[in-house]
Design a protein around this nucleic acid. Structure first.
Lengths: 194, 194
DNA sequence: CGAAAATTTGACATGACTCAACTGGAGTGG
DNA sequence: CCACTCCAGTTGAGTCATGTCAAATTTTCG
């Protein structure tokens, strides 16, 4: 499993030498997560930063009216963390729940801090990862504003074609910012057309 | 002017010693920007990473229908960059235009890379800055989904109360993802109530 | 098999958009 | 310093995309 993470790291920071990566990897523990199982519940403090080796997980917030809002769906090679909670040690706003059986690697805060000190390139790794996430969020904000619900739905289905059928309409709706009923209608329309 | 940036850096990474900061600051050049002036136009490649000392700038994208979509408004102590363009050296999707006369500090890619090599703590600085931005974008995505246009408008006015009166309705609309006409109606309503 | 949840569907309501006309400043040139 | 233009903002009327609520149907899973 850790091979996955190793390949990922080499892809991002090629200067990493084997010995450094192995040292870093030692801090991670493998964790299996069953479908529907939560690895984080809103209100808890985030203790681990998590790398997804296999599977698919759902990161979402439930507001005071009980409506859910999806931050993203995590798949292979994505990281999961409510950075705000992890860094500032405050209760998380987010739930993280497995959509399928998944395998993840976790590292706790203490070990991560240690890794930052022992292996300077880890700084660079996380800086670049953060930049990549930023780009994704920026794109998403622009798209939200420039596309209709229908366009966003079509875009979503294309972008996540590998996993779209695993994800409930309700969850897709909460990602796109529309109601599940409306997704149902869009789906019907899309089937009739395409 | 550079004192501003120095204070900012010390606030984020207290471990920075004076000598390191001064070395880093040498790479920056001061630039004055007049109201309405563009420091980046869509389609150009981003050459500089920019720190705002004073003023207010508008980062937005114009889509193929000519509609504008605001990524954010930058004020004192914010950074401006289309990271995607800066890092990957591709044409930018964004325009950056001054809303008021502003002072910014700029660093080019070459010098930034040099700084990363010469001053390891710069990695940390940018990692933490990125994390902070990520948190802001995540919050915004959740808010977009959970709030009506009216709520988003009220929230915006409160959050940017210091600069809200400088920003045109049109720009606020493009930030919130609604039409300027609708903002006009919301404003009227807000005045009548509040 | 049965209960609970997700999805679909229909009827209706409404928030937000469109388009067009009008108003009012800000900037410009003579 | 006036006249002119050009945007930004306002307002009204009509429309459409999307939401709401409730009932029927299907799927999931213990």
């Amino acid at each position: 499993m850790k091979e996955h993470l190793k390949t990922y790291i080499q892809g991002i920071v090629p200067e990493f030498v084997d010995q450094e990566i192995n040292l870093f990897l030692k801090y991670f523990k493998l964790k299996k997560v069953k479908k529907k199982e939560f690895i984080l519940k809103q209100g808890e403090c985030v203790k681990y930063e998590t790398f997804i080796c296999e599977g698919c997980l759902h990161v979402f917030h439930a507001d005071c009216n009980g409506n859910e809002h999806t931050l993203y769906f995590g798949i292979k090679d994505w990281w999961l963390a409510d950075i705000d909670s992890f860094i500032n040690e405050r209760p998380s706003q987010f739930n993280i729940q497995a959509i399928q059986d998944s395998s993840v690697l976790i590292i706790n805060k203490e070990d991560k801090d240690k890794a930052f000190r022992e292996i300077p390139k880890v700084e660079k790794l996380f800086r670049i990862m953060c930049q990549k996430s930023l780009i994704v969020y920026q794109q998403r904000i622009i798209q939200y504003n420039s596309m209709s619900a229908e366009d966003r739905y079509i875009f979503f289905i294309k972008k996540y074609k590998d996993i779209a059928q695993l994800i409930s309409n309700k969850a897709i709706a909460s990602y796109l910012g529309v109601t599940p009923e409306y997704i149902s209608r869009l789906r019907k329309k899309a089937v009739n057309i395409g």
